[in-house]
Design a binder for these strands. Structure first.
Lengths: 134, 134
DNA sequence: GTGTTATTGATAACCGTCTATCAAAAAGGC
DNA sequence: GCCTTTTTGATAGACGGTTATCAATAACAC
């Protein structure tokens, strides 16, 4: 059960640490593969599970799609999902009013806020990505 | 393409209309079955799809589990998920502050808020559900 | 380097949800 | 009731995400 350091493990952690936003297993696989083309998807899932168990990672669950993973230990925050590129972005802080959230008798332990829309890149006017700009 | 009225369709709509909270396909199946034991799950899915297309229903998407369905036309609101009984409850209104939700350049089109905790019934002190109450 | 044992990659299998298929049953106009 | 067309129920299968299996490979203590 002793942990060994492997190139695969390092690459996976590096991909997440450098991303600046929560990544899906697929994204992590694609990114880590750049440094080791033979990297298998099963290895990515194995390490994700382990890193979550170790407390180094936290999953960001989303409706109808694969969970994303981000570094643990961050301040309370929420996420933004771009409808065009489907990437998840981290938002700062929490915009939820804390009073009278649920009916009497209900115990609120936690909450999740997800914003949907277009990220900065995808929201740029079309002309900036046109093939034949004026 | 003409719509026929069937007992199955009526039962499914009735289950949703009477529930007072969003139901999963499984919950709808279980409930409707009381009035028609032979009702198949495929029929439930077929009608859910159709009722969504017709605009009578809206899906409530949730991370890592089947969507729930509720009547359309309700005022903007969010949901509560009980961690114990796993039922989803409707909350009144929206507790989200609307200013500066996302970084500059991001376009926020929509949002989702989910509270997690214990519903009124599951939050009750254990003694109220003990087998041998004093 | 050697040996032990963890780790890896490929792939089959799994899981829950949902959809397609199709013969049998039922709705509804006549 | 009769006929046409929709709907139904059972089940196989699709689907995306994830995990198990297992022989080959690699880490690392010596």
């Amino acid at each position: 059960m002793i942990q060994r350091n492997t190139r695969q493990r390092d690459l996976i952690r590096e991909a997440i640490a450098r991303a600046g936003r929560p990544l899906s297993p697929r994204e992590i696989h694609a990114q880590s593969r750049r440094g080791l083309p033979g990297l298998g998807i099963a290895t990515v899932y194995r390490h994700l599970r382990r890193l979550v168990e170790e407390g180094w990672l936290v999953p960001v669950e989303l409706p109808g799609e694969a969970a994303r993973y981000e570094r643990s230990g961050k301040a309370h925050h929420h996420h933004f999902r771009c409808r065009r590129c489907r990437r998840i972005f981290e938002l700062e802080g929490c915009a939820l009013k804390t009073r009278r959230l649920a009916p009497p008798g209900f115990v609120v332990e936690d909450h999740e806020v997800v914003l949907y829309g277009l990220c900065e890149r995808c929201a740029r006017p079309a002309r900036s990505t046109q093939r034949h700009p004026g």
